[in-house]
Design a binder for these strands. Sequence first.
RNA 1: GUGGCCAUAGCUCAAUUGGUUAGAGCGCUGGUUUGUGGCACCAGAGGUUGAGGGUUCAAUUCCCUUUGGCCACCCCA
Length: 449
Amino acid sequence: MSKNLIQPRTLKGFRDFLPEMMLPREQLIDTCKQVYRSFGFAPIETPTLEYFEILAGKGSEETDRQMYHFQDSGERHVGMRFDLTVPLARFVSQHSQALGMPFKRYHIATVWRGESPQAGRFREFMQCDFDTIGTTSLTADIETGLVIVELLIAIGVGGFQVRINNRKVLNGLLDKSGLAEHATSVLRVIDKLPKIGPARVSEELKSTCTANDQQIASILEFANITGTNQEILITLDRLVAGNELGELGCSELRTLVETYDSLGLPSEQIQIDPSIARGLDYYTGTIFESFLTAIPKIGSVCSGGRYDNLADLFTKEKLPGIGASLGLDRLLAAMEQLGQLPKTKTPAAVMIANFDANSQTVYLELARKLRQKRINVELYPEPKKLGIQFKHADRRGMEAVIVAGPDDVAKRVVQVKWLASGEQSEVSLDASASLLASELSSKLQIRLG
RNA sequence: GUGGCCAUAGCUCAAUUGGUUAGAGCGCUGGUUUGUGGCACCAGAGGUUGAGGGUUCAAUUCCCUUUGGCCACCCCA
């Protein structure tokens, strides 16, 4: 009769998260919130499902193909969101009167894309978006870059580099060289430059974008520019000279870089990279991508840009925006590969051993006092042998175990044992909560509720 | 969606050219006589070899299909 068990399994590209993954994952989410809030971004939430027409045709042809969609029982054609930016465009169009402009929001939520999974690439993953809507001011662009830098520093992933570019520069150049009508496909090809090299890029430009040799040469020169930010800007100025849009893009890029410089950001952290283009169709100005120096192969962990026309499809109001998105699950996968995740399996910092069946109330009271001091406490549920209980606490990575047997309870004391050092001391029951609180505050912050 | 590589216990891997009851380490559960984890020793649970079909006297091993993982294309967080 046990033959007909259903095999427990998860869908391709979808995953379960065990406590040791969820603890750092939730910590990342907290860090995002903290950084976003520090810049004044406010939280919002939108539905998982949208009318298909809201989502369709907004990202790119590719995102349309990858979108999960179906008809609900009321025959409505429904899509699952593949990013948080398109729902945001709908959201601000629908609520602009209530929100007022400019509007800054963050949105941390799951999105779905039916693409082929790989390392750091899933069908269900979490994005942490922040956006500023209703202003074309470059200050918003500058702050977007600052948020990314602050975020990656706060997360503590080690070395990283934010690369910036500007679609106006790209489009201006294409305009100037007569390739404007193939802009999208040219941009896609440029994006591949670091991966496939200049030879194959020029092949593809010729075949898919019908570019001539001169056009290819200028595109390659553009995408291949290297040097300091200042050197790159000088070359860019020369390449776009005479094209109004391109010149504007260059001056925007210059403003960003010079501002970051005067704010004292190290130039390794924010670098102009003319080859980044972003596949998404909706970007119109500044674009960002960011890579971890330890594991660039996993792809961009935080990217975004300016999109001045995204809400045009939903409203006649002018609602330009800029923002970026941290790929939380990709970042987590990177940190796992780099061995940066702690192996803690519990949020509890302290365990109260369950020694004596008659002292349950004492334990429960003590646990409550510790929680009032913002210490996460687990009370072992049954009075098993102490060895077992200690092992339980140790295996899960707790900091301390509190033991109070009948003799201790009679004397109004507890034994506090620190698992890492093995030190043990007797403290009075009444003082133990505050004592532990001060001891623990110098240890792992992560487990202080 | 296309192509390539892979699939044995929770994890990392064994199993002589296809040969009989598929093994080890780590992990897990419990024990080493009852107030203390990490070390050591002992025991136990856990696999219809991812699943389904085929070839064969015989399949973990060969073939097909399927599912999943990784890689490339594509695209992206």
